[in-house]
Design a binder for these strands. Sequence first.
DNA 1: ACCGTATTGGAGATTCCTCTCTAGAACGCG
DNA 2: CGCGTTCTAGAGAGGAATCTCCAATACGGT
Lengths: 204, 204
Amino acid sequence: MARPPRFDTDRLLDAALRLAATAGPCGVTMTAVAREAGAPSGSLYHRFPGRTALLAELWLRTVERFQDGFRRHLADQPLPTADAARVAGRAAARHVVAWSRAHPDQAALLGYGPEDFDRAHWSEEHRRRADRGNARVFAEVGALAERLGAHGAEATERLTLALIDLPLSVVRRHLRASGALPGYAESLVEDCAEALLATVSERR
Amino acid sequence: MARPPRFDTDRLLDAALRLAATAGPCGVTMTAVAREAGAPSGSLYHRFPGRTALLAELWLRTVERFQDGFRRHLADQPLPTADAARVAGRAAARHVVAWSRAHPDQAALLGYGPEDFDRAHWSEEHRRRADRGNARVFAEVGALAERLGAHGAEATERLTLALIDLPLSVVRRHLRASGALPGYAESLVEDCAEALLATVSERR
DNA sequence: ACCGTATTGGAGATTCCTCTCTAGAACGCG
DNA sequence: CGCGTTCTAGAGAGGAATCTCCAATACGGT
């Protein structure tokens, strides 16, 4: 009933992703995305009302993909014991690195924050999507803390640090320095996460 | 022998710093810096050959200030024992947070990397300054690893993670979320750094 | 008082970016 | 085969950013 699209949303976001990975968020200009995708600028504005919306979609698509895998690993606990929780935590931390290795462009994005993608001007709906994703991860991490016998915001923060921030730091450092992750990255991260996990469960 | 400057380099960099802290590196435009400092654009180009040079100076000034304090804390070891090394490591990690608390604008910059400050187009001299600063820190961290009885690149990387990346992750997360650091940040970081330090010295 | 110099102050050329607008192309459906 | 719809295609207006250039200015030294 209509002309078939030559440049669908995902194709355009893929082009934007390549640009963001190499030049950072502010290298993602509408002109550059159009050039990278081989599309006229009109097609861009047919999909996105403006640059802000494109940046929001790019950020959210990436973060949601990342969070989906991460949450799946955290939720994968056969028994509600502290030991199973520790195993799941280690697996989640390792997954962050493995996912980054498989998707270096998207991992490079995670080295930034939503503010760098013009969050200040996002639509209400985009902002809600972001909040919902974060809340889900937060809930899952909080549940893990409970299973480890730890309660409170600081315990959750320690876990966030161990399972997300620390792995992403390793990824970021290497991606920025050499563009690739060394082979030992997964085990390094898993080992460090384990050490931090211990400080959570030890504390009453 | 000449007209006294109204806008010296540091004043202009301070204006650029304020902009970078609130809008990120790509909010640092020559126009915006001039407006923020109340200076005409001519004065900007009198101090810096171009935007790239201004960004480089801004990044290097910030990083060098940070690294100076950090290295001072690491070098402060009364005895060449592993215990003294551990104490110094903890102090250095704590210092990262304390410094960030005292200088939130500059800490916000450290959440980015030199690439975001147009490192690709830096002059040879700027690049050398950056390399020298990093090499010094690297050497100091490597020396700490030796005192802890650990050798090799991976041990140094673990220490970098514990003493720099992890503290900066905490700082970044809070600065981005609420604009301020919670009171417990220093002890949280010190505690986590300790746990990671243990994994370094334990390993043969 | 006068000169040389470092600096201010700002106008303006050029380039790039965002976004608008319109003409027409490609398809499914009746 | 037309009809309606969705999309392509690109020209171009409007704005902003970088950088150049030069006259005006304020000082120290002689």
